[in-house]
Structure formats: structure tokens, C-alpha cells
Design a protein around this nucleic acid. Structure first.
Length: 183
DNA sequence: TTATGGATTAGCT
DNA sequence: GCTAATCCATAAA
């Protein structure tokens, strides 16, 4: 996946199997993307952009291919890649750790490394300093193409407040992977 | 200036 | 299965 300026559902599906690469002081942490969710436009009540542009969500109103990182529940960061023209993004929910597991384990303080949006941000040291930066090597966080695996689609998680939008099957993951988030 | 609640996680029953 | 923890962004006043 290199062009994020295309329909969000398509980006969310094509990202599965791609590699998320984090480079810190020359050291690389690598994970394969195994779970994503699409948040699409201002009508989608589950999407932060549905309330209009705010200080927090403004990266989604910018160009595709930029990171949208936000803080939730007083504890956790979530990593999204901005897509297409309308304010939309794909939430990266889980990774299969590929490289740099020792460092991830240090960052996390436990063996459960990347099986959730908050977990993978902690494992890869992703925080608001990356917010609204382009996904490229220069910024130390980018995506490289991998093989497209078979996947299934399901309802998004944690958005029950969004009414009928909560029923949209806009979550994609690799079935039977031990690395996807629980629930 | 104050109040509210969340795109979660960890720990416990 | 259930829920406390935790704090920033947002909305209300």
C-alpha cells in the first residue's frame, strides 16, 4: 500500500498483510498488520470527524497518507492513517510482531505486544509527536507492501454509541490469527 | 471555569 | 463475564 488516496474500505482491506515499520535511532521495530477498521466521513457517527473539524481531528481533514494519532481513555494512543478526500481514516488495531520484539517487550513491560490499538502504540513508541506527520521513512514511521492474506469483515469495536453506524461491518482482520485484539 | 465521556487495557470474578 | 483506572478534548456554563 503506497497510495492512500482511494476509498477507505479498500485501503483498510489492502493494509492487511502490509508491514508497519517504526525506526528509532536507526533501530527498526516491524509488525505485520492483521486488523484494521475504517472510519468514513462526516456522516459516520463513529468517526471523530462527524462533529466537524476540531483541534484533535484536523489531520483527517488534511491529505491522505498522514498519521492521525489521538489519546483516549486517559491511557492510550490510537494510530490511524488518513485516506481519500473526505475526512476519513483507517485505525490500525493489531499487528503480528516481526522484528524488534525484545524492544517491544521492554516498551510494554509484558509479553502481549501488539494485539490492540493502544498496545501497539506502546510497543512501537507511537505518541502525539507523530500526529499529522506524513507516513514516510523520514518521520520514522511508515508502511511497506506485503502479501494480501485472506480476511473476514465484522462490526467495529467500541462504537456502540454510534447508533446504526455501529452496525457497519467496517472492521477487517485475519481469521484465526492469535495476534488480533480480543472481544 | 467546570463537567462529561471515550475508536482501551488490565486485572479480577 | 465485569469494571476501575485515567486524563485530555470537547461542550456547557
Amino acid at each position: 500500500m503506497s497510495n492512500f488516496n482511494q476509498p477507505t474500505l479498500q485501503v483498510a482491506q489492502e493494509l492487511l498483510g502490509d508491514f508497519l515499520i517504526r525506526e528509532i535511532r536507526g533501530k527498526r521495530l516491524v509488525g505485520k498488520i492483521v486488523e484494521t477498521e475504517a472510519y468514513i466521513g462526516m456522516k459516520d457517527k463513529a468517526c471523530h470527524a462527524s462533529k466537524g473539524m476540531t483541534e484533535r481531528n484536523k489531520p483527517m481533514f488534511g491529505p491522505a497518507g498522514y498519521w492521525y494519532v489521538y489519546f483516549v481513555y486517559g491511557n492510550h494512543f490510537c494510530l490511524n492513517i488518513v485516506t481519500e478526500k473526505q475526512p476519513s481514516a483507517v485505525l490500525i488495531r493489531a499487528l503480528e510482531p516481526i522484528k524488534g520484539m525484545e524492544q517491544m517487550r521492554k516498551n510494554r513491560g509484558r509479553d502481549d505486544l501488539c494485539s490492540g490499538p493502544g498496545k501497539l502504540c506502546q510497543a512501537l513508541k507511537i505518541d502525539k509527536s507523530l500526529n499529522n506527520l506524513k507516513a514516510c521513512k523520514k518521520n520514522g514511521l511508515w508502511i511497506e507492501k506485503g502479501d494480501n492474506p485472506p480476511f473476514v469483515r465484522a462490526k467495529r469495536i467500541g462504537v456502540d454509541y454510534a447508533g446504526r453506524w455501529a452496525d457497519k461491518k467496517w472492521r477487517f482482520y485475519i481469521p484465526n490469527s492469535p495476534f488480533v485484539s480480543r472481544h
